[in-house]
Amino acid sequence: MIRVVLADDEAMIRAGVRAILSADPRIEVVAEAADGRAAVEAVRAHRPHVALLDIRMPRLDGLAAAAELRRTAPDTGVIILTTFGEDEYIARALADGAGGFLLKSGDPHELLAGVHAVAGGAAYLSPKVAHRVITVLSGGRITHAAAARRRAAALTPRERQVLALVGAGLSNAEIATRLHVVEGTVKAYVSTILTRLEVRNRVQAAIVAYEAGLVDHT
């Protein structure tokens, strides 16, 4: 069972998201919060697999909450709920350790897929958000993509293969199955990849994979 803490300052949004999550028998919403500080406290109390955070909340916004959770509850994956009007926050959320980005206006199946992916240790970017993340971080510059290709080229062929699968949103277990290796081997590859690319987490690695052309993001 995937345990989720849901935080949004709008009661109707929380009700809608809870209804979607409750439709999956493998997901349980263990707590709700109407502000970021309450969300952090709920995560500390319940130790969920995933914290689903709105960006704009009182007391502590979702980005600050994500940063605090990365320090105090690193075993809880964070998914940020966003809109296209919040592009300026994407890079900060990425740096603050978020494992997923979802649109409130997106397909409900993306919400479920994102929760499962992040709970399994994978990164998840819904297709539209992935495109926006790449655009925001690269500024639309070809030179940025070239830099990403150079960084990826420094990896071994096997590491690039693992990076491509990370970029595609696969968990360690799924990558292990795909490559016919044990999960511990994949974890070691991912750790090495993060170090060699000088990135903090799987989402940042996934962005490099997208920008380097290792993943089809059309």
Rank of each mutant, 00 (worst) to 15 (best):
I2V: 06
V4P: 12
V4Y: 13
L6S: 04
E10I: 15
G16V: 08
G16S: 09
R18N: 03
A19C: 04
A19Y: 13
A19G: 06
I20P: 09
S22G: 12
A23H: 10
P25I: 02
V30F: 03
A33H: 05
G36C: 07
A38L: 15
A39C: 02
A45S: 14
P48C: 00
V50Q: 12
A51N: 13
A51P: 12
L52W: 15
R56A: 04
P58V: 02
D61Y: 14
G62P: 14
G62F: 14
L63H: 13
A65M: 13
A67K: 15
L69D: 03
L69R: 09
R70F: 13
R70T: 12
T72N: 12
A73H: 13
A73R: 14
T76M: 10
G77T: 08
V78M: 11
I79M: 06
T82G: 03
F84L: 02
F84G: 00
E86T: 06
E86K: 13
A93M: 06
D96I: 03
G97V: 09
G97T: 05
A98P: 10
G99D: 08
G100R: 07
L102D: 00
L103C: 00
G106E: 05
L111E: 05
G114M: 01
G114P: 03
A117L: 05
G120K: 08
G121K: 13
A122V: 07
A123R: 08
Y124M: 00
S126I: 01
P127G: 00
K128G: 08
K128R: 14
H131I: 10
V133L: 14
S138A: 02
G139P: 10
R141T: 01
T143N: 04
A145L: 13
A145E: 09
A145I: 03
A145V: 07
A146K: 11
A147S: 10
R149L: 00
R151H: 00
A153T: 04
A154V: 01
T156Y: 07
P157E: 01
L163R: 10
L163G: 05
L165A: 02
V166W: 03
G169F: 12
L170T: 03
L170D: 01
N172Y: 11
E174I: 03
E174K: 14
T177S: 14
H180R: 07
V181W: 08
E183L: 07
E183A: 04
A188L: 07
A188G: 09
V190R: 14
T195I: 07
L197E: 00
R200I: 00
N201A: 06
N201M: 12
Q204W: 11
Q204D: 04
A205G: 04
V208K: 01
A209M: 13
A209T: 10
Y210W: 15
E211A: 15
E211P: 11
A212I: 06
A212T: 04
G213K: 03
G213N: 00
H217L: 15
H217D: 11
